[in-house]
Computed example of a mutant assay.
Amino acid sequence: MMPKREPWVVKGRFVDGNYFDYLIGLSIENVEAILAQTMGDQSDDKCTNCHYGETPFKVCVQVPGMAACAPCHWGGLGFCCSFNSEKDIRKACNERVILYQNKFGISSNLNDVKMEITSACQKHDEEMNQLGGLIDSAEMLRATMAVLHKEHTRTANLADKIDNAHDILLQSTRCVLDTMKKKPARLEQYIEECKDLSDKVV
């Protein structure tokens, strides 16, 4: 088969050409959709998804042997195409469910699923309670740190006052010592003056 058209996409559906190229190689369904879009025949009546503009391509294209149109096949969503029969859609949906069950380990038993969800919710609640406890502990630690900081500031101020008092006391002590050193010299001078006076009297 020869290419019949460019795979024109809906404006604004993709960021740019590089991202579009990246998406093409992301899955085999996207590669098949691009090939079908360029080589298939344009449908006279669009499928429901293409009619409402919910597909990435502007033209609704079909290829013999492919139940879904090419735009719907993009992303592996061909089972949603209205060109499929109800039986084909149901079969594709069941296959998709089984695929996700095997991929993510999801049980097909609804009771098991309910139990798994309940268990996950309980685990989430326990983790939230633990987180709440950690938040409370963090708040207590924050309050304690604030008190310690206040006490540290108070202690630092008290240490500054003690240093100032020590400086004042040291200066006072030096003054007293200087005064005491001067007094003996004055006493000796007084004694000498008394002796001189006594000699004169005699």
Results as ranks from 00 to 15, higher is better:
residue 29 E to R: 12
residue 29 E to P: 01
residue 29 E to W: 14
residue 30 N to D: 02
residue 30 N to L: 02
residue 30 N to C: 07
residue 30 N to P: 05
residue 30 N to F: 02
residue 31 V to I: 13
residue 31 V to K: 12
residue 32 E to I: 14
residue 32 E to N: 07
residue 32 E to F: 05
residue 33 A to P: 11
residue 33 A to M: 08
residue 34 I to N: 04
residue 34 I to C: 05
residue 35 L to Q: 06
residue 35 L to R: 11
residue 35 L to T: 11
residue 36 A to K: 03
residue 36 A to Y: 05
residue 37 Q to N: 10
residue 37 Q to W: 01
residue 38 T to L: 03
residue 38 T to E: 12
residue 38 T to P: 02
residue 38 T to G: 04
residue 39 M to G: 00
residue 39 M to Q: 08
residue 39 M to K: 11
residue 39 M to W: 00
residue 40 G to T: 05
residue 41 D to F: 13
residue 43 S to R: 08
residue 44 D to K: 06
residue 44 D to P: 00
residue 44 D to R: 03
residue 44 D to S: 04
residue 45 D to L: 08
residue 45 D to M: 03
residue 45 D to K: 08
residue 46 K to D: 04
residue 46 K to R: 06
residue 48 T to Q: 02
residue 48 T to E: 10
residue 49 N to G: 03
residue 50 C to L: 08
residue 50 C to S: 13
residue 50 C to N: 05
residue 50 C to V: 11
residue 50 C to R: 02
residue 51 H to D: 12
residue 51 H to Y: 09
residue 51 H to L: 07
residue 51 H to P: 01
residue 51 H to G: 05
residue 52 Y to P: 00
residue 52 Y to F: 14
residue 52 Y to K: 10
residue 52 Y to E: 12
residue 53 G to V: 15
residue 54 E to G: 11
residue 54 E to S: 11
residue 55 T to S: 02
residue 55 T to N: 04
residue 55 T to Y: 00
residue 56 P to L: 07
residue 56 P to D: 04
residue 57 F to G: 00
residue 58 K to I: 11
residue 58 K to Y: 02
residue 58 K to T: 07
residue 59 V to N: 04
residue 59 V to T: 09
residue 60 C to A: 12
residue 60 C to D: 09
residue 60 C to E: 05
residue 60 C to P: 04
residue 61 V to K: 00
residue 62 Q to T: 14
residue 62 Q to L: 07
residue 62 Q to M: 14
residue 62 Q to A: 10
residue 62 Q to K: 12
residue 63 V to L: 15
residue 63 V to F: 15
residue 64 P to R: 12
residue 64 P to L: 12
residue 64 P to C: 05
residue 64 P to E: 11
residue 64 P to I: 09
residue 64 P to S: 13
residue 65 G to Q: 09
residue 66 M to C: 13
residue 66 M to L: 15
residue 67 A to F: 14
residue 67 A to Q: 15
residue 67 A to Y: 13
residue 67 A to N: 15
residue 68 A to N: 12
residue 68 A to H: 07
residue 68 A to C: 15
residue 68 A to W: 01
residue 69 C to N: 15
residue 69 C to F: 15
residue 70 A to N: 04
residue 70 A to G: 13
residue 70 A to Y: 01
residue 71 P to Q: 13
residue 72 C to Y: 02
residue 73 H to V: 01
residue 73 H to A: 03
residue 74 W to Y: 12
residue 74 W to H: 03
residue 75 G to M: 04
residue 75 G to W: 05
residue 76 G to C: 09
residue 77 L to A: 10
residue 77 L to Y: 13
residue 77 L to V: 03
residue 77 L to Q: 10
residue 78 G to I: 04
residue 78 G to S: 06
residue 79 F to Y: 11
residue 80 C to G: 01
residue 80 C to L: 15
residue 80 C to W: 01
residue 81 C to M: 03
